[in-house]
């Protein structure tokens, strides 16, 4: 998995390439937690390059959502149908701002 960020006027955009799985999820969590620690509370994660997400990835987004609660917004965008299916069958779809 490769992860990069881009600062825009209203948010920090995080671009993920590859799988968000058991091995890569801690890396993604640490990357975004560092952005939050620097005082950026509006974060958009772009899934355009994401191949698949396992429950370790869901755990990461649950954790990030809790870190940002009452401080800012977490937006998840550009998910492919298979990734959306993982969020759907675990009941995570209505819990997140997915665009």
């Amino acid at each position: 998995m490769q992860v990069t960020k881009k600062k825009t006027e209203n948010a920090t955009e995080v671009f993920v390439e590859g799988a968000i799985d058991t091995l890569s999820s801690p890396k993604l969590l640490a990357f975004v937690e560092e952005i939050i620690a620097s005082g950026e509370y509006n974060i958009t994660v772009d899934f355009k390059g994401v191949d698949y997400v396992s429950s370790a990835g869901l755990k990461t987004f649950l954790s990030l959502s809790r870190s940002l609660e009452g401080k800012g917004n977490l937006i998840l965008r550009n998910m492919n149908a298979k990734v959306k299916q993982v969020f759907d069958i675990t009941g995570f779809l209505p819990l997140f701002n997915i665009q």
Binding site: D21, Y52, S54
Partner: peptide, 8 residues
């Protein structure tokens, strides 16, 4: 993709 998730 489904099997990648399942094996992970």
């Amino acid at each position: 993709c489904s099997l990648a998730v399942a094996f992970d």
